[in-house]
Design a protein around this nucleic acid. Structure first.
Lengths: 345, 345
DNA sequence: GCTTAAATTGCAATCGATTACAACCTAATT
DNA sequence: AATTAGGTTGTAATCGATTGCAATTTAAGC
């Protein structure tokens, strides 16, 4: 059984035409009941399976979508992809994965690569916010046949839909929660503000302070990359201050963890002395041995599902009047031990 | 710019034939330097991009591989997939993701689905070890055109290659390490032994005890599912014993964490009173605030790369004499605070 | 200047499926 | 009995690229 059987094989065996077989198989056209039954039986017998490649070429639809992420082995992105796959598979689509490692050139290259294999759409989280509108994107946009949907990290390009999370609200809620816990000197570990997501968390933090009559203190705002070591370093700086903060809101769970470790090592208590809230709801935040970490959940799987739905709408929409959707999901603050002073919260 | 340009468009513009254009584009046949240059320039001008779908249909190679996992949003599987993608993309392949949620029927369905879209190979981690050799697998094997490679969780089918980790050694090393730390009553939280991987960890544990003159005690061997709550439950059982263990080797990091939490809450110290070693080296094991958890690293990304290499060999091998490879990777015990009594380890 | 070989390019089939249109047969209507 | 409608099936083009073979042009050899 080397070669796969085609409709021609079936046709030959039955003394029919491929056209007839095709129609019988598709139940569609008016084929006599007899031949239809005959074809169906023979197809089963000969182990026939439709070659979707041929179909794709003929129909112009590959039923493949490409997903581009910086890396797949991060809880956030793999959860988004899970959502995408679960939403799209039942509709007949397959999901092709591409990683960029945050390299701009790879980003463009993989977009083109996906277009070459005739994907019906591309869902992506851009790695670099600074990216000017260049070749790859322009080509995507110009040729309206291939819908593009951004998720989480988007670029403002007209005609391109996006699904993001309300980072401003996330930052705001986290900060407000800390204020409600009685904290007044609230530090913020923020990440590169050139990224919309980080900037919005920052702005939410500032606004919450403002709304509650707390003046922001720039010395409490420390740029910190998203890893444990950097979190520790920033915490050290904060603890060395004359009047250290009584809370830290970190735009990254990893930095939050680093801060937590540093603070505990200095003999301070969490949340009694210093409250901590992170961002992203990484799995480990709830897997702490003692002090689970409060964090902001972004519902990545849900984000994937919604992005998939937006894509489905766009491919389904035959009109030229494509409506651009910019969907913003609402994040949710998950309060855990690291920030819960009063149990009656 | 609605429609994509094809070689026919180029040919028409140049008063040539598609055949000539194709050859010029492929540098291959003997096309005069003039026309070649002309074609190349025009192609660039018209923004031509090869339609890989047409190529795939013609050549019989889609340059797509399917990867089937129970779920993608687990650190282990997403790391494997990362490895696969990084290894395969440079060779011109794209990776299609499928999830089974551990449902057997979905497993078969997705195999067939992938075969229908003409993937050049399938890499998979089976969800259920009990699976009898049924339709989907048989079809794959019978039609030797599509290589199949198992990773991590395999099935013994002749003619099918696999890449796994030496779970026996992982279990052995973890246990031996605990013995070296002076532990003598070593408990084991194991998972469903119908799975080869869990059974091998179990056997490694037993063998290490045997080799070091420690008799195994069945009451210290508790079947425990891979989650925090179950880990706590089992730890409770162990702590309630007349002579509780002085160490726990868990076949799951999640169960290990549960045990750690339970033990700490009971006021016992780790590692002084009880040592703990987990399995899988989940990210959170090193992100503990105080007591980082020792664990066995399975090098999932490496596993993905190796599985991809095996696939590449199999597609590259035109001979009918396919050699089945069963590669076993060596895991590595990562010793952390939860099991390190003597600092001079 | 004519034959022959070499260099280019075109023709047409192929991959596997779909589908508009044509053709055929059968049975019903007048 | 002839016309017609309806039901079935075949013919051939199409999707976009590749490739063996044929055809043509060009250049070389004598």
């Amino acid at each position: 059984m080397k070669k796969k059987t085609t409709i021609y094989d079936i046709a030959a065996k039955l003394g029919l035409t491929a056209a007839t077989v095709s129609r019988a198989l598709n139940n569609n056209a008016k084929i006599s009941l007899n031949t239809r039954k005959l074809v169906l039986e023979t197809a089963l017998e000969m182990n026939y399976e439709q070659n979707k490649l041929a179909l794709a070429l003929k129909s112009g639809k590959s039923y493949n979508v490409g997903v581009i992420v910086p890396r797949i082995d991060s809880n956030f992105f793999s959860s988004v992809i899970r959502g995408i796959e679960e939403e799209l598979y039942p509709k007949g689509y397959h999901v092709i994965i591409c990683q960029t490692n945050n390299q701009e050139n790879l980003e463009i290259e993989k977009i083109n690569s996906l277009l070459n294999v005739q994907v019906d759409g591309i869902l992506m989280s851009i790695s670099n916010a600074n990216l000017e509108e260049d070749k790859g994107f322009n080509k995507l946009i110009r040729n309206k046949n291939t819908p593009l949907v951004f998720f989480d990290r988007k670029k403002d390009i007209k005609g391109v839909s996006s699904v993001t999370v309300d980072d401003f609200k996330g930052g705001y809620d986290a900060t407000k929660h800390l204020i409600d816990q009685g904290c007044r000197r609230i530090a913020h570990l923020f990440n590169d503000r050139k990224f919309e997501i980080f900037n919005n968390r920052f702005l939410g933090y500032r606004q919450a302070l403002l709304d509650n009559g707390i003046e922001f203190d720039e010395s409490l705002e420390i740029e910190t990359m998203s890893n444990v070591a950097e979190g520790r370093k920033s915490a050290k700086v904060l603890l060395d201050m004359d009047s250290p903060p009584d809370a830290i809101f970190s735009s990254s769970d990893f930095a939050a963890l680093g801060a937590l470790q540093e603070i505990k090592e200095c003999g301070l208590r969490i949340p009694e002395d210093i409250c901590i809230v992170g961002f992203s709801n990484e799995p480990f935040t709830k897997f702490m041995e003692l002090t689970t970490i409060s964090s902001v959940d972004q519902f990545p799987m849900e984000m994937g599902k919604v992005a998939a739905q937006v894509f489905l709408e766009e491919v389904g929409n035959t009109q030229d009047s494509k409506i651009t959707k910019n969907i913003v999901l609402t994040p949710e603050l998950i309060v855990r031990k690291s920030s819960l002073k009063c149990k009656e919260g």
